[in-house]
Computed example of a mutant assay.
Amino acid sequence: MKTTIFTIAFAAAVLLSGCTVQAKPSLVTSVPKNDGVEEIFKQLKSEKNVTYINLPKSFIKMGLKSSNDKTASALADQIDALQILAFENTDKKAKDNLYKRIGGLEVKGYEPMVKTNEDGEKVRILVKSNEKEIQSIVIFAMDKEDCSLIRIDGHINPSDLDAIVDSQTK
């Protein structure tokens, strides 16, 4: 379902930034560049029918602080970058290839948190973390028509992320 993919991408962008601006890549990074996700973004961001959005820390911080939401504001200093790839009119072979690449992130230190497959829609949420913080969240959503890939990098306290999820699901 096309709306599911774009709802996830839109919710992440709105929740974490409050604005949608295409910007130059952030110089701040917390996850090694060889983690597999960076390669996917680098290779696909200029492809036809792909929308690439990169929000550096300054825009994310501005959006979260202006939200007047205490739980969102708590994340303002913890998120370094937000990247989104939205694919439109992508053929099945290309989407399946991307799906396999996302699955391959597990051997690069990402842990699967959510795996769903319902009515042709697939959603994967993977997290790279240590004992103290979440360093990267990767959200991949795909349906029969479109797919999206979202990456959130930072030094995120898991309890702050739980508070956001709780406030959005009540």
Score class of each variant (00 low, 15 high):
1 M>Y: 07
2 K>H: 08
5 I>C: 15
7 T>K: 09
12 A>Y: 06
14 V>R: 10
14 V>D: 12
15 L>R: 03
15 L>K: 05
16 L>V: 01
17 S>V: 03
18 G>K: 05
18 G>Q: 06
20 T>M: 14
24 K>V: 08
25 P>C: 04
27 L>R: 13
28 V>A: 10
29 T>E: 06
32 P>A: 11
32 P>L: 05
37 V>F: 02
40 I>S: 03
41 F>N: 06
46 S>P: 01
52 Y>L: 01
57 K>F: 09
57 K>W: 04
64 L>E: 00
64 L>K: 03
68 N>E: 14
69 D>F: 02
71 T>F: 08
72 A>V: 04
73 S>P: 00
73 S>C: 11
74 A>V: 04
74 A>L: 09
75 L>W: 02
79 I>K: 03
80 D>N: 13
82 L>Y: 11
84 I>F: 03
85 L>K: 05
86 A>E: 10
86 A>D: 08
86 A>C: 09
87 F>K: 06
88 E>K: 14
89 N>A: 13
90 T>P: 01
91 D>Q: 06
91 D>C: 10
92 K>R: 14
97 N>D: 15
100 K>N: 14
100 K>P: 04
101 R>F: 02
101 R>P: 00
105 L>Q: 04
105 L>H: 05
112 P>H: 08
114 V>H: 08
114 V>I: 15
114 V>N: 04
115 K>Y: 12
115 K>G: 06
117 N>K: 15
117 N>R: 11
118 E>M: 11
119 D>T: 08
119 D>K: 14
121 E>F: 05
123 V>G: 02
125 I>E: 10
131 E>R: 13
131 E>Y: 10
133 E>W: 02
135 Q>D: 07
136 S>W: 00
139 I>S: 07
139 I>G: 00
140 F>N: 01
140 F>L: 04
141 A>K: 02
143 D>F: 03
143 D>S: 10
143 D>A: 06
147 C>I: 05
152 I>A: 01
154 G>E: 01
155 H>D: 08
156 I>D: 00
157 N>G: 01
158 P>Y: 12
159 S>A: 13
161 L>V: 07
162 D>E: 15
163 A>P: 05
163 A>T: 09
164 I>W: 10
167 S>C: 06
170 K>E: 13
